[in-house]
Nucleic acid binder design. Structure first.
Length: 299
DNA sequence: AAGTGAGGCAACCGCGGGAAG
DNA sequence: TCTTCCCGCGGTTGCCTCACT
């Protein structure tokens, strides 16, 4: 059964919005609320598709949209969030008030992707994280996210290490080690969600599953595993292995999806927010983590 | 000064999920 | 329970601007 088109394309205007159209839309939404986007154009006197109206409103006209360049804090947040959830732009946007998923997606695709590639290339051969990111650029989605995840973890551990050496407070070594206890992490962990999640059962299960597939950090950053990943760098062009690579990618995707599901549940449990409007950690969690851990590293 | 290519961003497209009937 | 419809999402496209030659 085919889907009915969202609107009759005949005579419906497309392309850039004119100021008059913006005004009509803003006036209508502010007066009546969006209501049903499908019938909104007619009611508002717009010759546009409802979808187009919704997009224009949510991505551009909404009054709470923060415009202008991304701050270093936002940049870091995007990096870390993307390392966890991947291209779930709406989830990332939900943690960044005033930013839209489209804006974040564009920012990632233009600025951050390029930056990561450049940094990885510059640091090629200098460290596990750099290797992982480089591998990620040429490997399957699961490996890409594993690499991003591992990079975030390494950074978090570095921060924690610095903090624990300078602070007199008791940040127990258990949290910085590879403890697999979620409970322990919950009690004594630093407010770095990545380290906490990495040290939890979720991290364990993901590392185990990924290691089985030969992509995981268990088989990589832990030492011998990094070389195990490296052949993928040069081996990308081997067409003879295309079929098996495809199967491996499919399996890895399944594993990655399972990990994501677990991670989302774990996030909710870690922060005791199950049942709240979002299963994802709230912005204040990141703000809290940011104050403690990111500030010393920013210019 | 004109031409060209790359980068950035707004908007579109198609699909999937979920609610309503 | 099934069908239909709407909403929201992620991927992609195309236009505009700007830097470089």
């Amino acid at each position: 059964m085919g889907r009915t088109p969202c609107c009759d394309s005949k005579g419906i205007k497309k392309g850039p919005w004119a100021p008059e159209e913006d005004k009509l839309l803003v006036d209508y939404v502010q007066a009546n609320g969006p209501g049903n986007w499908r019938i909104l154009p007619k009611l508002a006197g717009l010759n546009r598709c409802g979808k187009s109206c919704r997009l224009r409103w949510t991505n551009y006209l909404r009054p709470d949209i923060k415009r202008g360049p991304f701050t270093p804090e936002e940049h870091n947040s995007i990096l870390q969030l993307h390392a966890v959830v991947g291209n779930k732009w709406s989830m990332i946007a939900a943690q960044m008030p005033g930013r839209t998923d489209n804006e974040i997606k564009n920012y990632w695709n233009t600025h951050m992707k390029k930056q990561i590639r450049q940094e990885a290339a510059a640091a090629a051969g200098e460290g596990a994280a750099a290797r992982l990111v480089t591998v990620a650029a040429a490997s399957c989605p699961a490996a890409r996210h594993t690499a991003q995840w591992e990079t975030a973890r390494l950074e978090a551990e570095a921060r924690l290490s610095l903090l624990s050496s300078s602070a007199a407070t008791t940040v127990t070594s258990a949290t910085a080690s590879s403890s697999s206890s979620t409970v322990a992490a919950e009690h004594a962990a630093p407010p770095d969600i990545f380290l906490r999640l990495w040290n939890s059962e979720v991290g364990d299960s993901f590392r185990g599953a990924a290691a089985q597939q030969g992509h995981g950090p268990e088989a990589s950053a832990a030492g011998a595993g990094v070389p195990a990943l490296l052949p993928e760098l040069g081996g990308g062009g081997d067409d003879s292995s295309a079929a098996s690579t495809y199967e491996a990618e499919a399996a890895a995707d399944d594993g990655y999806q399972a990990f994501l599901d677990l991670a989302m549940e774990e996030f909710a449990l870690l922060h005791g927010r199950l049942g709240a409007f979002s299963a994802f950690p709230q912005a204040d969690v990141f703000a809290e983590a940011h104050c403690c851990l990111f500030a010393p590293f920013e210019e």
